[in-house]
Design a binder for these strands. Sequence first.
DNA 1: TAGATTGTTAATCGATTAACAATC
DNA 2: TAGATTGTTAATCGATTAACAATC
Lengths: 233, 233
Amino acid sequence: MPVSQAPKSHVGARGGIPDATVSRLPMYHRSLVALSNRGTILVSSEELADAAGVSSAKLRKDLSFLGSYGTRGVGYEVEFLLYQIARALGLTQEWSVVIVGVGNLGHALAGYPGFASRGFKVVGLFDADPALIGEEVTVAGRAVVVRDVKELAQTVRSTGASIGVIATPEASAQQVCNSLVAHGVTSILNFATVLLEVPEGVHVRRVDLATELQILAFHEQRKSQMVLAQETA
Amino acid sequence: MPVSQAPKSHVGARGGIPDATVSRLPMYHRSLVALSNRGTILVSSEELADAAGVSSAKLRKDLSFLGSYGTRGVGYEVEFLLYQIARALGLTQEWSVVIVGVGNLGHALAGYPGFASRGFKVVGLFDADPALIGEEVTVAGRAVVVRDVKELAQTVRSTGASIGVIATPEASAQQVCNSLVAHGVTSILNFATVLLEVPEGVHVRRVDLATELQILAFHEQRKSQMVLAQETA
DNA sequence: TAGATTGTTAATCGATTAACAATC
DNA sequence: TAGATTGTTAATCGATTAACAATC
């Protein structure tokens, strides 16, 4: 009884790109940019998968969710596929971003060259520390002045920024988050250790440096245990 | 025909903790530390799951891979569970870490308070820039001097550091990685955009700020598309 | 004993993979 | 036509979830 027609197509078809696939699209995008810079015209799924560090089967499956952008027996046109992935990710439009917290991490983020090249425009830098307010930070060649976090509302409203980055100490993260959300930000990248409470519809991604190190430690420990087990055996 | 006995138990049983579970252990650890600081003695799976932002079923399933550390009808002892998770993650031992690349990001990492409190000791800071070499950076109350990346080998050997953090520009990342691996580092946290080539047995985790922002942009775009679709309908 | 909560089971779901038909 | 490579299928695998028996 083949009843497997409707259920899967609901997810796989129009619009619904699996999370696992979305998380790999930036890698494909980056690999294609590198190929493009080298002047490569065509690329096979095998070559691109190699560059991105995945299997060719996975790559083809992933791309199939975006559409049918290759040519059988030939491969993919680099520029065309690059555009299609950029479009799927939303990189063909400009996104206004505000960064709250301009300590070392905030500085690192503001100076990150990967932002501007992918359509992210830092329209505001904010901090609560008077020592930092007024400082000029060079972001993608433009000078951006660090402003008081109290002026956040105005900037978010006037620029229509929909993405906010929180790089503050833990203690102020939730408060900053509330303020961002209240003024129209609906996507937040959180570098603070706390789990943010947000209303439904607001998307939060948390990047925690300690988490990454801890996972690394776990694997490191497992290695030494394996060595020990071998010695015992 | 119930043949499902051996296959699953191979992964679920001794030692083999699923990747998805490992990735959540740091969150549980953090939540337990918070509870411990508040003086909480006992916690139920429901409460802890809430604090960590997961379902109680998922939490109990995750914890069951570590062992049976709760009491039915009662809950989990905070201090005991905290220790067990720390032990599983390898946080009961000290890990020596070297950080290569002491720009804004490297500074942010070195100054990150979450390192020392979880047993990570920064034993070396390295850079290739003469302007940075010699600078004293305060790491967990100790002064650590930034040294020339050429002296990396000596420090890794003498301290037995097994974890390396790469916060260099893209161009030097692979070279630094090779050097780390050559001198005994077997786990690497990579903040550079490139995909590092490493020999088998070396564990690499990559954290890419641009990737995170791109995934955020994807979801943000999907929201606006949904709004558009609603308006059309 | 009655109430509470864990640890485990089994069903479901989503992601991965290998194989290959479609097609350039 | 022969060779190459995509896009899709179907099988497998791992993760999630709800329900509940075990047990404090």
